[in-house]
């Protein structure tokens, strides 16, 4: 069952001057078609300005398409009454951990979403504890978020989304401002939620090693989907990736270079383990 569906979606940013006259139009999403199945873990890659964040905002009903329809969990995001249902079922985590935490106490911040939904106190408390537990931050319940690390703050932001009990979580470059340790923790959390709670995850990132962990990769370019497939399929097209001004994981690059210089091995190797296995196999055969 598809939980996110884009049908011929276009979106345009419009700049106006003081007199509300249009000075500039920019079509950030162009005639885009996409469907994502329930429980999928999709990574979205793309050069700066390719329309990734716009795509994310369309899923969360923060913006509505100019033409075409976006359907999330069966709700058309263009219909006024659906907006809060869509936002409840598709939670969103943003890039800057500091700019999305609302309260000065961790527990209170996680409670923000459920409070907006008008849920009863006892139930909110239960959800907040459960959400903090599943991101491994329960012991920080009554801490101030201010002194926590970036990775911890992002996990609190994830807990804030979880407390609304969403079906989908969209993360817009959640690890861009984090150190390697923080990145690892955040990614682990996302993968765990996807695996254990079957939460459909859409991870926008510019780290290829993160994208390699997904079940599916979508590459955006100029407001359109340029590539769509399994990580091995996408990354094996090294030249096309370069054309789109993107890198591939180091090991895939090595794989590509070996292949190009005549070594007999398949393309699409993503991990060091796969590479060593493949090399050992070659050695045995030789």
């Amino acid at each position: 069952m598809e939980i996110i569906k884009f049908e011929n979606v276009s979106y345009e940013y419009i700049r106006t001057d003081e007199q509300q006259r249009i000075t500039q139009r920019f079509e950030a999403i162009k005639q885009l078609n996409l469907s994502i199945e329930k429980g999928e873990f999709v990574a979205v890659l793309g050069h700066n300005g390719s329309g990734k964040s716009t795509l994310a905002k369309l899923i969360n009903a923060l913006i509505q398409p100019k033409s075409g329809t976006v359907t999330v969990n069966g709700f058309d995001t263009s219909v006024e009454e659906n907006i809060y249902k869509v936002r409840k079922s598709a939670g969103m985590v943003f890039q800057n951990p500091d700019n999305q935490i609302i309260a000065s106490v961790v527990g209170e911040d996680v409670a923000f979403g459920p409070e907006n939904l008008g849920i009863k106190s006892a139930e909110i408390l239960r959800r907040v504890r459960e959400a903090l537990e599943s991101v491994g931050m329960l012991k920080y319940f009554d801490y101030s978020p201010h002194n926590l690390s970036g990775g911890q703050k992002q996990r609190i932001a994830i807990a804030g989304v979880l407390a609304m009990e969403p079906d989908i979580i969209v993360l817009d470059e959640p690890t861009a401002m984090l150190d390697p340790l923080g990145r690892r923790d955040v990614l682990k959390t996302v993968m765990k939620l996807n695996a254990e709670k079957n939460i459909t995850s859409v991870l926008i990132t510019h780290f290829m090693d993160e994208a390699a962990l997904a079940q599916r990769i979508i590459v955006m370019e100029g407001g359109k989907i340029a590539m769509d497939g399994k990580p091995a399929e996408v990354f094996s097209q090294v030249e096309k990736m370069r054309e789109l001004r993107l890198d591939v994981p180091q090991i895939t690059e090595l794989n590509y270079m070996l292949k190009k210089s005549g070594v007999n091995m398949p393309l699409g190797i993503l991990t060091v383990k796969e590479m060593t296995d493949e090399l050992c196999r070659l050695k045995l055969r030789a």
Partner: peptide, 27 residues
């Protein structure tokens, strides 16, 4: 200003609205 813009978006994404009464975790 950048923070305010980001925060407003994050709040909206978490269903913040002013037309209904919010509930509270700790009454």
């Amino acid at each position: 200003f950048k923070r305010a813009e980001d925060l407003a978006m994050a709040m909206e994404a978490r269903c913040y609205r002013t037309d209904i009464k919010r509930s509270k975790m700790k009454e």
